[in-house]
Design a protein around this nucleic acid. Sequence first.
DNA 1: GTAGAATAATTGTAGGACAATAGCAGAGGC
DNA 2: GCCTCTGCTATTGTCCTACAATTATTCTAC
Lengths: 260, 260
Amino acid sequence: MSNAAVNRNGRKAGALAGRRQARAAPTAPAHGATVAFIVERLREDILAGRLEPGSRLVESDLTARFAVSRGPVREGLRRLSADGLIEHRPHRGAVVRRLGEREMRELFSIRIEMEALAARLAAAAEAPERRAHFLASIEPIYSDGARNPCDYLRENAAFHDAVMALADNRELRDLAARLQLPLIMAQVADVLTPPVLAASVREHRLVAEAILKRDPAAASARMRAHLGRAAAVALEGRAARINEEIWNGEPPPRASRARR
Amino acid sequence: MSNAAVNRNGRKAGALAGRRQARAAPTAPAHGATVAFIVERLREDILAGRLEPGSRLVESDLTARFAVSRGPVREGLRRLSADGLIEHRPHRGAVVRRLGEREMRELFSIRIEMEALAARLAAAAEAPERRAHFLASIEPIYSDGARNPCDYLRENAAFHDAVMALADNRELRDLAARLQLPLIMAQVADVLTPPVLAASVREHRLVAEAILKRDPAAASARMRAHLGRAAAVALEGRAARINEEIWNGEPPPRASRARR
DNA sequence: GTAGAATAATTGTAGGACAATAGCAGAGGC
DNA sequence: GCCTCTGCTATTGTCCTACAATTATTCTAC
């Protein structure tokens, strides 16, 4: 017990916490924010691809990595599971969720409805200050420069979030945040070729135009078209990648990963 | 520690567990199902109105009631919170969620889109065995007898679930299950007058007819109309009840409940 | 009567223990 | 050689206790 690391307030922490904490937890969470801290870190890791689909999330590893006890870790995993980022199997632990084709299709068809609703509500919104804020938030989509995929993903998230904000339906916004479009995007980031990005940006502008013109029907329809095309690209890209994996003779890495 | 109750496998349980367990937990959960057990019980209590909106859910009370430790209780509360049945405030505990008018409107507008999508997908579904199962599941809506509100709520849930099942979109089904229509229904159960019930049953039949005729557009539109009317009734009923409460001079019971 | 301090109630987290289970590896039978 | 069955191991599920942190309440001094 002599090499135990001190976490924040003089409390002892897990075994090999000392060194890893320095890298993994540069700013220790305040009391009451431990779970949120863990969730945020893991979410970033998953969406950034640092944790690949199928990666196992073992509680004892996480207690060591974050220098926290199992309670917050378990709660964090539950929350990620509720958000659909990981899957939980009894006595087997959690693994980063892998989206199959069916799930992608399903999630996209739901997302289309939600975003179309949001676009309709946004176009019908009156509040001038929210409209002004919307206009300011979407400004980047009018930039003419070339975008790299990472820029685009940020711009895309900001655009859709701005629509949600203007729609002013909190429940819808919460729900949409749980629909894992980010996860989908992260898993098919390699289909974001320049022509695809350019088309997407054009579609964003069309949606924005309809919203700004207060045309709910057009806003809804254009959002639908935008996401429908995005879904097609994503599914196609996914299929292509799977083919490639097959060509490489490498079976898709299921739960088969080296133990620690 | 001598009066500690034995829970299931010879493990000791919380202090005053013995007597209360007999009432609250007649069938002890199997290992690995404790959290699910707690969640189910609390969900029933909330939806049946035994736990009114605003009721506090204190961890120590629940550990006593269910004769389990705080771990599962906390995880259960987190799950109910993720499902939107309760609200969590830091260091203040969980309370049964009270749906305001805004939240009801928002939830209904989302629900309308989801159910309309489900109806469309259901109408377009081909699989004969699923269609057969659908037909069997919705059989109760063709009963001509009068319904009491409780019967109706069950029938209604079964109908909408049957549509979801036929639509065969797992993600949509999961998401819809978290949309708290049950909670809404429970909180406005007193608007379910015989004429309202009759109208609702008629609308169910219209939706079913369109689905069985493989008419996605009609199914979607009728589901929209059905839920739109349901939303109006629910919101109206809610307003009426609030008026009544004001007349009784009793301010809506917020978090002000007697401590134990 | 109000500001501020003590107190109580409750949650947040730590940490250690053990039971239960799923998956795996090796022993034994065919 | 292949199959089955049994034990082992890794991991999660749950319990317990203790204490820190925070919020709400009550009490006291002015």
